[in-house]
């Protein structure tokens, strides 16, 4: 079965996800995502959960958070810390790459 796919959407900076979309795409339960927002792991636009809009980059963060929570059984503050440190590592690796190291 070979199918041609035409409707490809790039999740770039212009795309935002709702809470329901983010939960589906990251396979994280809604209560979990609410907790992450409360603890600053994810920072959506909007006040109430039904108005929350997540940047497309939040999907990657939410998927990582889910792996850390589910596979490594890390609690929410630990997840927040781990994600911040991963971001920092990425920034440092990027500057190493820029320097050609």
């Amino acid at each position: 079965m070979n199918e041609r796919i035409t409707s490809v959407q790039v999740l770039d900076d212009g795309v935002e996800l709702t809470l329901v979309e983010l939960c589906r795409a990251s396979r994280a339960p809604e209560e979990q995502v609410r907790l992450w927002v409360l603890e600053g792991v994810l920072t959506p636009r909007g006040a109430a959960p039904e108005e929350w809009r997540f940047a497309a980059t939040a999907l990657r963060r939410a998927r990582r958070a889910r792996t850390l929570t589910h596979d490594l059984e890390i609690n929410t503050p630990g997840v927040a810390l781990a994600l911040d440190l991963m971001d920092e590592i990425e920034t440092l690796r990027a500057s190493l790459r820029r320097a050609g190291l």
Partner: peptide, 25 residues
């Protein structure tokens, strides 16, 4: 388990770490 082959066109300007969403796939 079903094996499927999809032909996907990856648009120019895509960046590392970005996601493509294929609705309904």
């Amino acid at each position: 388990l079903q094996e499927r082959t999809l032909d996907v066109s990856i648009p120019r300007g895509i960046r590392q770490g970005q996601n493509l969403r294929l609705a309904g796939q």
